[in-house]
Design a protein around this nucleic acid. Structure first.
Lengths: 341, 341
DNA sequence: ATGAAAGCGCTAACAA
DNA sequence: TTGTTAGCGCTTTCAT
């Protein structure tokens, strides 16, 4: 009744492993999944058989019955090229992959550049192809995370939704404190006309860093400086710097809400003959690798980018396991002093 | 005999769609997969039913029978942090994802930092969890691609294996021509003592760019300049530049085999009081975004990074479809003139 | 052109 | 603790 030895070239199945170990498929399955109620001897036999046959579970078969996909989606909801030139995203990806991989799940990478893409992803996710999703780069009040959740797909955001209190799960760095740290550094070195290049105001990070800037100014009894919105890119930072200079030619410091924008600002400042930091001090945000390479090297606010990705993954994993998870996790930032301020 | 209407809240299955369309599961399946032998009316009915129920195929069930995973692995075989600060990788990823996504396959992202990781990935891939693998950043004569192929997993490399002629599939940019272009540009502007910071010599890209440099020098009747090996990183470029200066204080030009290394070189040159390009001209390689941001902006050799990723994916897709595919695809490079040379 | 039926490899009751 | 037994949702012969 026991099936004959399977051909050696075919991929081993549970059936074969069980037969070789002299137990039933059920027992073999239990052993391989680490269930507790198995005898020592059965366990050893199965493990060895599996080893010898280099057995790997067929995930499709498993998924079919468990109704879990054993994979999570990493969705970049960004239509612009920006994300692909921003090392920030790569950092998040690395962190997330490390945790997801360690949990033995797959990370399925997806990009939704258009509304059609987004729609397609929703269908895909709703179809049970992923157990949860890690959502990167949320703009405005994108309904995507809420849709995903209502479709039964646990989702964790990077950043925070614009309107709070939705019960969405999100992981963010402390942009408010970060904005303050940057501005305080400028204040501490004696700057008095402090301008800022903000991030997109349709993103929590953009809003919060600006709010931090304002708080710091107010706390120091300083008036608000010139404010221009940027888009987190180098070109955007440069354009914003031009406008800042036009708005307040006397400014003596600039807080740029991203390193990339700070680099753009540095370029413009250089062209205009302003010395950094002597004439104008500059502080960036992120501490991605270009910060240290800029001329002069950028004083900046470091975000724990890798940790952001890891934390997102951990929160999602916790949810998938039915464990408690923080709705909103905020990671600390830190000022990194270099030459630009 | 027809099953009763399924509960509306459950995910629709083929069974339900078929019932609603008044056909058998087999016919519904044929329609949904675009098989030809179906009547007009059956097709319409099924399509509409599927639409109404927002049916999505259960990939696990499909995979179980077709024995295809409908997904491809994107494996970064790199133990160092380097790759995560190099925009190059992100470009490849984007390109690959675009093609893979368009073909309706999933891109499963993985990192193999240690030999253990690599081993695990092999088991995973051999287990039929992916239909093919896109392999990034190959060092030395890594056996991984050959193992994967011998395990029956079609693999496509970025770059070229060190020892050619293995029948491995790879997609590369024309590093030899690129090295020549860079060096020719330096020669054309009158440089005569041209040094180079090479890429890792355990990688084809590193070797080929150096070979191109030598070819150009020889063609111009110029003697070889100082040569120091770098590791594609900024820090590595800076260290190499120091050694170059020590080896030949009179050098008047440097070809750095990556933009990141060129940036490092620029820093050192600045510290040593050498003006770029007046005292020393510099040409980089890649044309990643930092090239344009460097001070001075970097003249560099552009690789079609996005296309590299896309092409890798296309080659793999072709193989998966049993179509003919080039063993080795080489994409052209192009000199981008900016201020550093 | 269509349907009936047989699994794909696995997990999870349920019995023993 | 272990084995028996149903399926999970789909594709695919094989008839019709």
């Amino acid at each position: 009744m026991v099936p004959p030895e399977a051909p050696a070239d075919a991929r081993a199945t549970l059936e074969v492993v069980a037969a070789r170990a002299g137990v039933s498929r059920a027992t073999a399955s239990r052993v391989l999944r680490g269930a507790s109620n198995v005898s020592e001897s059965a366990r050893d036999a199965v493990l060895q058989a599996a080893q010898e046959l280099s057995y790997t579970v067929n995930r499709a078969a498993r998924s079919l019955v468990t109704k879990r996909a054993d994979s999570v989606g990493f969705l970049v909801a960004e239509s612009e090229d920006r994300m692909f030139s921003d090392p920030y995203f790569l950092g998040i990806l690395r962190g997330a992959q490390a945790e997801i991989g360690a949990a033995n799940l797959q990370l399925v990478f997806a990009v939704a550049a258009t509304p059609a893409d987004t729609q397609q992803f929703q269908v895909y996710a709703a179809g049970g192809h992923v157990d949860g999703v890690l959502l990167i780069s949320l703009h405005g009040d994108d309904e995507l995370p809420r849709h995903l959740e209502s479709l039964g797909v646990p989702t964790v955001l990077n950043g925070r939704p614009l309107t709070p209190g939705d019960g969405l799960y999100c992981v963010d760095s402390d942009n408010l404190a970060g904005g303050r740290q940057a501005t305080d550094a400028l204040i501490a070195r004696g700057a008095r006309r402090i301008a800022t290049i903000t991030g997109p105001q349709d993103m929590g990070a953009g809003q919060d860093r600006l709010a931090g800037y304002r708080q710091a100014l107010r706390a120091a009894g300083l008036p608000d400086g010139a404010v221009v919105e940027g888009d987190f890119s180098v070109a955007g930072g440069a354009a914003a710097m031009e406008r800042l200079l036009a708005a307040d030619p006397e400014l003596d410091a600039v807080f740029a809400a991203s390193d990339l924008m700070a680099v753009g600002a540095l370029q413009v400042l250089g062209q205009r003959g302003r010395r950094v930091p002597d004439d104008v001090a500059v502080v960036g945000y992120d501490d991605v690798s270009v910060a240290a390479l800029a001329v002069p090297p950028l004083t900046t606010v470091r975000q724990p980018i890798d940790q952001l990705g890891r934390t997102m993954a951990r929160v999602l994993l916790a949810r998938l396991n039915g464990a408690e998870a923080e709705r909103r996790t905020v990671l600390p930032t830190e000022l990194v002093r270099r030459a630009s301020a």
